[in-house]
């Protein structure tokens, strides 16, 4: 069965519509969404209503959570003071814009969604603020997939799509005990696992304005990273009309989105 997985729409209705059309053309039988339906973009309500009306299984992204619970990320989630100021502006605007039904919908979204051997998360199984970056060390990456009890972990949050295959390996854990020469060891083999980052529909960060998402074949395990052109100028105009900072439109048009980004990819906010 062909499934489509998308993430990080960020209130960009034009991009969402283009991706839904492409999914239809690809004849995917089911769609999943990895959250961040709102934030930065000018149409948070329309995006949520569309996802909801299509009954798409969706997990909660960090932006969705922040709209429900208030800003919860600590300062270190932002790469700079400037990004923090802009992120807070976007949050405040979105917070005022979303209607009660949308807020209610975002509040009831789960952090993870599992179906058979597939797991869907926004950031990681540990936190929707955590970045599973492609260069993350293999042991930590494997731990994240194993903790989800799935073979394939779909995530978003970085806005840059990638597929990472973690080959089956043999792990051995030894425990040093004081006053003892014995080193009890536990060893086990790990099956092949995969992390599939589906990129971003509405706020790409790969240097082009095009929306990205993934088509996955559950039978062949084939992954297709899709890049979809859309009329981003309409979204840019809507950003300006909404009174959002013009720099959001400028960056969107260049695929230069920058959201929060922890220096330490395994950083989990404790605030």
């Amino acid at each position: 069965m062909k499934i489509a997985v998308m993430s990080c729409i960020h209130g960009n209705y034009e991009a969402l519509e283009a991706v839904l059309l492409d999914i239809d053309r690809q004849k995917a039988e089911k769609i999943y969404c990895l959250g961040d339906l709102v934030g930065y973009g000018p149409h948070p309500n329309a995006v949520v209503e569309q996802i909801r009306s299509l009954d798409i299984p969706t997990v909660q992204g960090c932006w969705d959570e922040d709209i429900v619970e208030g800003l919860s990320a600590c300062d270190c989630s932002y790469p700079s003071l400037l990004a923090e100021t802009r992120g807070k502006l976007a949050h405040e605007w979105t917070n005022q814009e979303v209607n009660p039904e949308v807020r209610e919908y975002l509040a009831q979204l789960p952090h993870t969604y599992k179906e058979d051997h597939l797991c869907f998360v926004h950031g990681s199984p540990s936190s929707n603020h955590e970045y599973l970056l492609p260069e993350m060390d293999a042991f930590t990456a494997l731990e994240r997939v194993l903790s989800s009890d799935a073979d394939v972990l779909f995530c978003g949050h970085t806005h840059v799509p990638y597929v990472r295959t973690l080959d089956s390996g043999h792990l051995q854990v030894k425990v040093n005990q004081p006053n003892s020469d014995e080193q009890p060891a536990i060893s086990f083999s790990t099956p092949l696992k995969r992390i599939i980052n589906v990129g971003s529909v509405g706020e790409p960060r790969h240097g082009r304005p095009n929306a990205t998402y993934v088509i996955y074949d559950t039978e062949t395990q084939a992954v297709s990273l899709r890049e979809v052109e859309y009329d981003y100028q309409t979204t840019c105009a809507a950003i300006l009309d909404a009174g959002l900072p013009s720099i959001f439109a400028w960056r969107l048009a260049r695929g230069l989105e920058f959201a929060e980004k922890a220096d330490d990819p395994t950083h989990v906010c404790e605030r």
């Binding site: 790469p79 700079s80 003071l81 400037l82 990004a83 720099i247 400028w250 960056r251």
Partner: peptide, 17 residues
């Protein structure tokens, strides 16, 4: 100034933002 913020501004400014 914050270095990362300045670097962001400089990139935007030199690219015509």
């Amino acid at each position: 100034l914050d270095f990362d913020s300045l670097a962001t501004f400089w990139l935007e400014m030199t690219q015509g933002a």
